[in-house]
Design a binder for these strands. Sequence first.
DNA 1: AGCGTCACCCGGACGC
DNA 2: TGCGTCCGGGTGACGC
Length: 274
Amino acid sequence: MPELPEVEIVARELREGSAARGPSVVGKTIDRVTVLWPRHIATPSAAVLKRELPGQTIRNVRRRGKYLVFDLSRDVLLIHLKMSGDLTLVGAAAPRDKHAHTVFHFTDGTALRFSDTRKFGKVFLVGRAEDIVGRLGPEPLERGFSAARLGRMLAKHKRQLKPLLLDQSFLAGLGNIYTDEALHLAGLHPLRCSDSLSPAEVRALWAGIRRALRAGLRHNGASLDWVYRGGEFQHHFRVYDRAGQPCPRCGTAIRRIVVGQRGTHFCPVCQRLP
DNA sequence: AGCGTCACCCGGACGC
DNA sequence: TGCGTCCGGGTGACGC
């Protein structure tokens, strides 16, 4: 279930090369594209994608929110992995993968394979990355994301913290895991109203968000959908997926409720509703 | 603006 | 063992 840390790790590995994902894709030129599941191609049509990509070279791979951004010589390719998507650089002789739905073949014979068991992932080809990621909120790990800024953002809304933090146009990159973890680190109930936080609570939330994301990065992401081989963060969850188990801080049984159709995990003692 | 609901998928867990 | 059913994940579309 890729959230900011998992996507960041994929971007880094594709950019710099890794054992899990193969050598860097930066500098490779696309020769042709195979699309076995056209519904992956969100924009434009698969036909246009197959026509426009050949000849373009990958200049850089980066992340914005949960999107992977491939800067090409002319256009920008964006991929959203959703929950079960993965990208691997493979050689010409690689065994086929029945879940590989879009394959970018390079002129050197290698190929970047987009596999997605649940077929939720999306591919976008646009002239400017902003066409897709322009509506995203700030990056929580960026220098400019201060506690004061978070406080101003929170005060502008009257929403429950959990759905607000999951809203990518409010803040980019938090999914269900890191939101629950951040709220526990901050000692804030997921149903607290965003404009009701004291300055100290805002600072705690700011620190909790950043600590949760950094912990995920440090442990190479979480592996729940058997996608991110090597990710270990699932062994360090404080509340996520731990209903009935003891809170790491006070020992009280973690509770699970549903907020906006999302499973939400919290400690009823450390995260009280005023 | 904010909220609820649904659709999109399918592997795995569960119940019978 | 083999079925059937439900769940969860991120997002966009929709209606209120």
